[in-house]
Design a protein around this nucleic acid. Structure first.
Lengths: 341, 341
DNA sequence: GTGAAAGCGCTAACAT
DNA sequence: ATGTTAGCGCTTTCAC
């Protein structure tokens, strides 16, 4: 970087540094004439204000941090895009950091953002211990925390309504007449104790008087996992007529399992995914799935963050982001089902 | 942010600011005892060094910029991930900015990065006028420019070998006995004058003595575009036996077109994609396609960038990133072809 | 309307 | 081994 400073501009324009500063920031009175002179000098020297130096005095960096599990995951990258667009419109640059959902890495990412003095942080965190998150929030503000409930004055909560997503999916297949319903769920792990989606499924089943006995098949939440779990479900429940999957990757694996075992989707079995990943519209049959507008999520997250940044006292109520069911072709009415209700 | 500074730590530990600095940066002699004392004070106060302030004096921000077309595009997000991982290992944070391949936005992104005083920039740029890029490079260094040839001492060139990718694809289907070969290409536009992939295809055809007359069908480089172009190709060349597509999205659209018109892939027609996007392994049939290791690309790009950052004098020779053909199931030997050669 | 002085938080260079 | 001085590039405050 060529080291042209405000001093150089001042000399070139024959004014003081302050005058240059005034010309740049358009505040404080300055005669149009000198302003033009300064601007010309800036142009000629190719001067770019040093934001770092500015932030030393303004205590604002015009920078925000986004911490995600993995930017290569389309879910996060869409959120990132929405966030960046709005941030950019407001003159903010954004740092992005990946955690792979590892507690230590999450902690480290937070510290780095703080060291960079970002003006605010949008955080996806599953693994970092609550007390550490709170300890951090005690020294930093504001944080927009997504899909996790940690109460703290410096943390603004925002969550996608997964429960409602499952409810919509369930209602959709229920209304199509399905009664023998299964679910492909993830395996419960250390850092993943309670799946809101699984619990929502259980609640829906219970509410309709359906037993969940032998209806829930856990596996890795991947294509292969979905494939294996579907095979298991098919074996245990040959008559299953509709399956709700934890996510689209599992659903696509399930599609594959159906194909291999000679079942037609949705002819023999209806399948519903969750997430609406890019592939979902391209598989055969195109997948019906519950979706969040991820770009919108990113947008909403920064907008709140920006408000929080601009008002130290502000505290926002937790915000719920709705889901919608994207109806494609993997669900149809139950074939020869006797409607019980 | 709680404003605890090096001064506070110094007071707490009963030493000078400089001593605190020494304890933090582990350089310059310092007695283990005082160092421990300082570290304790840091711990107690929850002090985080202000990187902005540090960079004012070191003239280094520990920050790099990545400018891509669209982070929501899996291609770029994978590159980003590779880049971030390596950058992170070296203590660098990364700013990411999207351009949507718009010249003005690209220019703006560059200026913003410069204003943030990032230590280096990895740039994907198609649209920015060459003279503007050069003008920028005159004031900023280093830049790693990917997939575009602009010669400048401050710009290090890095390009994926698309020509070789097409060559491999072509050779693959040629060796499988195909002779009636078509291509689905993008439409030539303002900012997109010469497709290296299309030119490579033409070259391969010519070299084998094949005419390109009525064999190249342009469309939007999307799923729908591929679908439409394939329909057109099928109409013009009912006997086409293999098709090379500009990218996987077009290839998947082509798959769909084949399905609709009752052609089996690869039974009747072999199809080759380009890019190896995530979906490609999941469609039916799984797509044979030319791939770059995108994570690797990001990795290699930062590694060069870091070298350049650490040596003002260094200048690196242009670097070519190889492609590999990922052989899946959309290509098979030509059915009833008379081998001419 | 413009300039001079002070200082943001830190480290490099030079004392001690 | 530790402290003191100066200054990075900018804006804020207060003179003029």
């Amino acid at each position: 970087m060529k080291g042209v400073t405000i001093e150089d501009v001042a000399r070139e324009a024959g004014v003081s540094r302050q005058t240059v500063s005034r010309a740049i920031n358009d505040k404080g009175e300055i005669s149009p004439k000198t302003k033009a002179k300064v601007l010309a000098a800036i142009q000629q020297l190719g001067y770019t204000p040093n934001l770092q130096a500015r932030s030393m005095v303004t205590q604002r960096t015009s920078t925000i941090g986004l911490i995600v599990g993995d930017i290569a995951n389309p879910y996060f990258s869409s959120v990132a895009r929405g966030l960046q667009d709005i941030a950019g419109q407001h003159g903010y640059s954004v740092f992005i950091s990946n955690t792979d959902e590892n507690a230590d890495v999450e902690h480290q990412a937070l510290k780095t953002m703080a060291a960079q003095r970002v003006d605010g942080i949008v955080l996806f965190s599953h693994e970092l211990a609550e007390e550490k998150l709170i300890a951090f929030a005690n020294t930093y503000r504001p944080i927009v925390l997504i899909n996790r409930a940690v109460t703290h004055p410096n943390i603004h909560l925002m969550a996608v309504d997964h429960v409602d997503g499952i409810r919509q999916s369930f209602t959709h297949i229920w209304d199509a007449g399905h009664r023998n319903i299964g679910m492909l769920s993830p395996v419960q792990s250390e850092g993943f104790k309670n799946s809101r989606r699984l619990n929502a499924f259980k609640a829906e089943m219970k509410q309709r008087g359906l037993s969940i006995e032998n209806k829930i098949f856990p596996a890795q939440s991947t294509f292969d996992g979905g494939h294996a779990a579907m095979l298991a479900l098919l074996k245990a429940q040959p008559d299953v007529s509709a399956v709700i999957c934890y996510n689209d990757r599992m659903a696509i694996g399930a599609l594959q399992a159906c194909r291999e075992t000679g079942r037609s989707v949705p002819g023999d079995i209806s399948i519903v995914g969750f997430d609406n990943i890019r592939v979902s519209g391209m598989v055969t049959p195109p997948l019906t799935t519950a979706a969040v507008d991820r770009y919108e999520l990113g947008r909403v997250a920064v907008e709140s963050l920006l408000k929080l940044i601009n008002d130290d006292e502000l505290s926002l109520a937790p915000r719920v982001i709705p889901m919608q069911l994207v109806e494609r072709e993997s669900v149809t009415v139950a074939p020869t089902q006797v409607l019980v209700n």
